[in-house]
Amino acid sequence: MSEPLRLFLAVYPPSELKPALSRLAVGLQQDCGGRPVAPEALHLTLAFLGDTAAERLPALQAALAALKFAPFTLCLARLARWDNGVVWLGLAQDSPALAELAQAVRTALEQAGLGFDRKRFTPHLTLLRRSVRAVPATVTAAFEWTVRDFALVQSQPGQAGSSYRDLARFAASAAGD
Rank of each mutant, 00 (worst) to 15 (best):
F150W: 06
R23N: 04
A134F: 00
K119G: 09
R6E: 11
V86I: 13
L74H: 11
A38N: 12
P58N: 10
T122H: 13
G90K: 07
G176R: 04
S95H: 08
R56L: 10
V37F: 01
L127P: 00
V105R: 03
A77Y: 04
V11A: 10
P136S: 13
L98S: 01
A65H: 07
A99M: 05
L125P: 03
G27Y: 00
A41I: 00
F48A: 09
A108M: 02
L7T: 07
L42V: 08
L64Q: 05
L101N: 00
A47W: 10
S131D: 04
H124M: 08
P123F: 07
F121G: 07
V37K: 03
E100P: 00
S22W: 01
R148K: 14
W145G: 12
R129W: 01
R148P: 05
E40A: 15
P136I: 02
T73E: 13
Q29L: 03
V132R: 07
D94V: 01
N84H: 06
P13R: 03
A151Y: 10
P71S: 11
S15E: 15
L49C: 13
P71T: 04
D31S: 14
S155E: 04
F143E: 11
A63C: 12
V37T: 11
L57S: 07
R118K: 12
Q154L: 02
G33N: 05
S173E: 15
G90I: 08
A25Q: 02
D83P: 07
G176S: 05
A47I: 05
L64D: 01
E100D: 13
F69C: 08
E55T: 12
Q154S: 00
R56G: 06
L44G: 12
P71F: 10
R118T: 12
V132A: 15
A104W: 10
A137C: 06
L44F: 09
R56N: 08
D94F: 00
F116S: 08
L125T: 01
L127Q: 00
T140C: 14
A171N: 12
P19M: 02
R35S: 14
G115L: 07
R165W: 15
A25N: 03
A151C: 11
K119R: 12
F116D: 10
A175L: 12
L114Y: 02
L114K: 01
V37M: 05
P96H: 07
S162L: 11
G27D: 03
A175M: 11
L114F: 02
A108F: 03
L91F: 11
T73H: 04
C75F: 00
L89P: 10
E40M: 13
R148M: 09
F116R: 06
L79F: 14
S15N: 05
R23G: 04
L21F: 11
L21H: 05
T146M: 10
E16Y: 15
L109V: 01
M1G: 08
G158W: 13
G33V: 08
Y164W: 09
M1H: 06
P58M: 09
H43T: 15
L114R: 02
R6I: 09
C75Y: 00
F150T: 04
V26S: 07
G33K: 01
F170S: 11
S162H: 14
